[in-house]
Simulated assay, not measured.
Amino acid sequence: MKLLVFAIIALGLPALELAGIYQIWQIIGAWTLAWLALAILAGLVVLRIERAELLPRLMYSAFEGRTPLAVLWESGRRILAGVLLIVPGAISDVVALVLLIWPSPPRPRGPRAANDDFIEGEFRRED
């Protein structure tokens, strides 16, 4: 049963993408080729930028003492969006744009203590 569902999705999505491209071709004509080429170029740019920024962002989050999972989640979302932009079709492009404009959780600003368990101060013993 799972194999049948996977087969339907694996064959149905490309068929939907081709039908979408055909419908768009009927509306805007040869500009469809320009749209597909620009989408592929945008996907390559997204992947190149993400490849260059992933390691510095991971190091910065470790330096701040935060968990790198949020950085990995955002990076994975952008990588998936880049791959979906490379795949030709309107459905994959819309999903990629949603992944790219999805808001990221706000990051805390300002300096943070290295360890919040300690309070700095002076100690003096009085007998």
Rank of each mutant, 00 (worst) to 15 (best):
Met1Gly: 15
Met1Tyr: 13
Met1Thr: 13
Val5Phe: 12
Ala7Arg: 08
Ala7Gln: 05
Ala7Phe: 04
Ala7Gly: 05
Gly12Pro: 03
Leu13Ala: 02
Leu13Asp: 05
Pro14Ala: 00
Ala15Leu: 11
Leu16Lys: 05
Glu17Thr: 04
Gly20Glu: 04
Tyr22Ala: 15
Gln23His: 13
Gln23Gly: 14
Trp25Met: 10
Trp25Val: 14
Ile28Lys: 06
Ile28Gly: 03
Ile28Met: 01
Leu33Ser: 09
Ala34Cys: 08
Leu36Phe: 06
Ala37Asn: 09
Ile40His: 11
Ile40Ser: 11
Leu41Asn: 06
Leu41Gly: 09
Ala42Asp: 04
Gly43Asn: 07
Leu44His: 01
Leu44Ser: 03
Val46Trp: 03
Leu47His: 02
Leu47Ser: 04
Arg48Asp: 13
Ala52Ile: 05
Leu54Arg: 10
Leu54Trp: 07
Pro56Met: 01
Arg57Lys: 15
Arg57Glu: 11
Leu58Thr: 03
Leu58Arg: 00
Met59Glu: 14
Tyr60Ala: 14
Ser61Tyr: 15
Phe63His: 12
Phe63Leu: 13
Glu64Gln: 14
Glu64Met: 14
Arg66Ile: 02
Arg66His: 12
Arg66Trp: 13
Leu69Pro: 01
Leu69Asn: 10
Ala70Arg: 10
Ala70Phe: 10
Val71Ser: 06
Val71Arg: 01
Leu72His: 08
Trp73Leu: 12
Trp73Met: 11
Ser75Gln: 02
Gly76Asn: 03
Arg77Asn: 05
Arg78Gln: 03
Arg78Lys: 06
Ile79His: 02
Ile79Leu: 01
Ala81His: 00
Gly82Ile: 00
Leu84Met: 09
Leu85Phe: 11
Leu85Val: 08
Ile86Tyr: 00
Val87Ser: 02
Pro88Glu: 01
Pro88Tyr: 04
Gly89Glu: 04
Ala90Gly: 11
Ala90Val: 14
Ile91Ser: 08
Ser92Ile: 02
Val94Asn: 02
Val95Ala: 14
Val95Leu: 10
Ala96His: 02
Ala96Lys: 04
Ala96Tyr: 01
Leu97Ile: 14
Val98Met: 12
Leu99Ile: 02
Ile101Cys: 09
Ile101Pro: 02
Trp102Cys: 13
Pro106Trp: 04
Arg107Ala: 15
Pro108Arg: 09
Pro108His: 05
Pro108Asp: 07
Arg109Ile: 15
Arg109Tyr: 09
Gly110Arg: 00
Pro111Met: 00
Pro111Cys: 04
Pro111Asn: 00
Ala113Trp: 08
Ala113Val: 09
Asn115Cys: 06
Asp117Glu: 14
Phe118Asp: 08
Glu120Ala: 14
Glu120Ile: 14
Glu122Gln: 13
Phe123Pro: 05
Arg124Ser: 14
Arg125Asn: 13
Glu126Phe: 15
Asp127Gln: 12
Asp127Cys: 07
